[in-house]
Simulated scan of single mutants.
Amino acid sequence: MLPHRLSPITKLGKRCVLLGTLLVLLTPWAGAETPAAPQADVPPPWAYPIDPPGVVAPKDDGTLRHVPDSTLALTLSQVKDGFVSPDWHPGDHPPMPGIVVHGNKPAVMACCYCHRATGTGGPENASLAGLPASYIIQQMADFKSGARVTALPLRAPQKNMMALSKAATAPEVEEAAAYFSSLKLQPIIRVVETDTVPKTEVHGWHLADLKTGEKEPIGQRVIEVPEDLERFVSRDSRVQFIAYVPTGSIQKGKALASTGDGGRTVQCAICHGPDLRGLGPIPGIAGRSPSYLVRQLYDFQHGTRAGISSALMKPTVQNLTTDDMVALAAYAASLAP
């Protein structure tokens, strides 16, 4: 899939590591004692939601579903067909390639079935819009080789990616990468600092507001939910999300991202750019799902994401606590994409 030479990601990654090393050596706190690495733990369940066993899926009674500002009408079976991406708003994006809208039966699901027609994705997976094509291609190669897995192998979204990456052809991957990289990520996440959050349940590998009015302490969690669950189930790419984060976490994350907090981490802007919108082949992280970002930080730290970018990310994540990850993700998600 990739030529046998250093990819742009590898070259820039090495430069970023060198810059980060120089910055550490030149700062006044470089001689301070290195913070101890976090103790062994388990993946935070709120970041890795798993659908409970035994849940009976609702049956299709033939009722047609609609979403605002669309003339399309689809049944529940149609919106759940993994080889047909519901295109509620065709004017929101350029024409979709066949692999993106239909996939390739029997093993390659339609890309937009999970990642939506405009590449917004959801808390359970990745937003692909605006990511560099070379980065997307490399991630598919990492899924295929087994370098990129997940801390909780039972999660269906990651299992699906690992499976379909082995069946997708190089031209299909390149076509999909070109499509998603051509899109602009839309701001669909509203980050809200709070001490209490609505009670939630796991629904489709992400959290959903129970809408009972009951509240509970947020603790050190990110609670990310769609504002309209049924529209999200219908795979409407215009759905907005609320990401509840602990009070004060955005400012804490900004300090970590911009200063490194005395060697606790590496300044994010060195590689991801001053606005965290990406730099060359390095992906932007501004305005993306904080749940997803926490999972990636955790997976990098624990070695379950070990592709080309892992060497670059290791000094960034090795001393982070889960609370630090929450803060960094809250800050990045609060920025304009």
Rank of each mutant, 00 (worst) to 15 (best):
L72W: 09
H4P: 04
A178K: 15
T34N: 03
A117G: 04
A336Q: 15
G273C: 09
L276H: 11
A178H: 11
P90N: 00
P171E: 13
L210K: 15
P43Q: 06
Y135K: 07
T75Q: 06
L320S: 03
G119N: 07
P90R: 01
T196I: 12
A176N: 08
F83P: 01
G121H: 12
Q186V: 13
P3G: 03
A286M: 01
T321C: 02
V197T: 14
G13L: 12
L207E: 10
L185H: 13
R65S: 02
H302E: 08
T21L: 14
Q296T: 13
P94G: 09
H89Q: 04
V239T: 10
T75Y: 08
G122K: 00
K105P: 00
R5Q: 05
T322C: 03
G103W: 06
P217M: 13
T265A: 10
V149G: 02
L335R: 11
D236G: 03
L19S: 05
P49H: 07
S182Y: 12
V101Y: 01
A36D: 10
P97Y: 10
L152G: 00
V233T: 09
Q267D: 04
T120P: 00
P35R: 05
A32F: 15
K184Y: 05
A269K: 14
D51I: 02
D51C: 02
G146W: 03
P49Q: 04
R155V: 09
N125A: 15
A336I: 06
P44M: 04
C271I: 05
K184D: 12
P226Y: 08
I308T: 15
C268F: 12
V266T: 12
C111T: 02
T321N: 02
L76W: 14
R65T: 01
G20K: 14
F143T: 05
F180G: 04
M162T: 12
G273R: 07
A332P: 08
R155D: 13
Q240D: 11
Q158K: 06
W46G: 00
E124D: 11
K159I: 04
D228W: 09
A170Q: 15
M1Q: 13
L64T: 01
V233C: 00
Y244W: 14
Q158V: 13
P274W: 07
S181F: 15
W88K: 00
Q251H: 06
D261F: 06
G303H: 11
H272Q: 06
S249Q: 13
H206I: 04
A147Q: 13
P217N: 14
S291I: 09
A73G: 11
S134V: 14
V326T: 05
L335Q: 12
I188Q: 13
V24Y: 12
L279R: 13
S165D: 11
L312P: 00
V42W: 02
Y179S: 02
A330T: 11
P94F: 03
T150A: 07
S182M: 15
L131M: 14
T321A: 03
A286Y: 02
A176Y: 10
L6P: 00
D323Y: 07
